[in-house]
Write a protein that binds this DNA or RNA. Structure first.
Length: 293
DNA sequence: CCGGCGTCCTGGGGGC
DNA sequence: TGCCCCCAGGACGCCG
């Protein structure tokens, strides 16, 4: 499940391998993977061929390749969804779930294929124009509603804390709200709330600023570890830019730990149905009292 | 505006 | 052996 660290691993892998390359061909095997590209497959292909890749960027879980073409500031926006991967190969057989394949021509005519592989097709890509926001950022126009993530140099933790404190929704759904703070998904939300001993349903308005602030710090610390772990998995011969790398190597204390003893107190971690998915918590460290009402 | 819920999507796995 | 159902969850639309 790609969250910010996994997307950052992919972005940095692309930045290291495809900058300056020119897109020489695009094959779309699955229309649903470009369903957010309103103008359809033909337009997607013709707009991309001949473009040079200038940079690889990210905000939260959205990433985009900045493209150079006829006087436009365009971006190929990519979202990995649940199961998306971006793979780079010199050559080899196509993956079963290869949905969109780009042929790239790099420096010294080096040939690469960049493949968007996605089993469940929650992910996708589309072309968008880059615009300057009132805050001075250059973002794809359809990514401007995404808040800064916790690694953005201009992120303002106090602003995030203030927003959370005035909301009545549970802290976990606020952390997952990409317009408040971006990049956080189910895994890291559960881990951070375990760190700060908060129940996921605690209304934002019942929290102290220090508790929210510490939760943001915990998120940043855990995700930083996952980024560091993901960044070690690159190979120069066969670059596998893998959307699932990273968190396998980070010790998890809550997510997926149902029935395991809490690393702090020994009580068994529980998994509870929440918002059509699940939440994990330690019943002793993160009790259901103080939830308000 | 806010918040909660449904929907999209596939394949692995468990139950019977 | 086969079939059915559950489960994983990011983003967004809809509704009250």
């Amino acid at each position: 499940m790609p969250e910010l660290p996994e997307v950052e691993t992919v972005r940095s892998g692309l930045a290291a391998n495809v900058l300056g390359a020119t897109i020489s061909d695009v094959k779309v095997f699955e229309n649903r993977s470009i369903r957010q590209h309103d103008k359809g497959k033909k337009d997607f292909q013709s707009q991309l061929v001949g473009n040079k890749i200038l940079s690889a960027n990210r905000r939260g879980k959205f990433m985009w390749l900045q493209l150079q073409n006829e006087n436009r500031d365009d971006a190929l926006v990519i979202h990995l969804g649940m199961s998306g991967q971006v793979l780079l190969h010199k050559t080899s057989e196509l993956e079963k779930h290869a949905r969109v394949v780009f042929d790239l021509q790099g420096k010294r005519n080096k040939q690469l294929t960049m493949r968007f592989v996605d089993q469940r097709m929650f992910g996708g890509m589309f072309l968008d124009s880059l615009i300057q926001t009132p805050e001075g950022d250059f973002l794809p126009s359809r990514v401007t509603h995404i808040a800064r993530d916790l690694f953005d140099p201009f992120v303002d933790d106090d602003k995030i804390v203030a927003e959370i404190l005035k909301r009545k929704a549970g802290i976990k759904s606020l952390l997952l709200n990409q317009s408040i703070v971006s990049g956080v998904g189910n895994i890291y939300a559960d881990e951070a709330l375990w760190q700060t001993k908060l129940h996921y349903l605690t209304p934002g308005s019942r929290l102290k600023a220090s508790q929210v602030s510490q939760t943001l710090s915990a998120l940043r610390e855990i995700m930083q570890k996952a980024i560091a772990a993901g960044g070690t998995s690159f190979d120069e011969q066969y670059v596998r830019v893998n959307g699932e790398s990273g968190w396998f190597e980070v010790e998890l204390n809550a997510y997926g730990q149902e029935g395991e003893p809490c690393a702090r107190c020994g009580r068994q971690i529980v998994r509870e149905a929440w918002a059509n998915r699940s939440s994990h918590r330690c019943p002793r460290c993160q009790p259901a009292r103080n939830l308000g009402g």
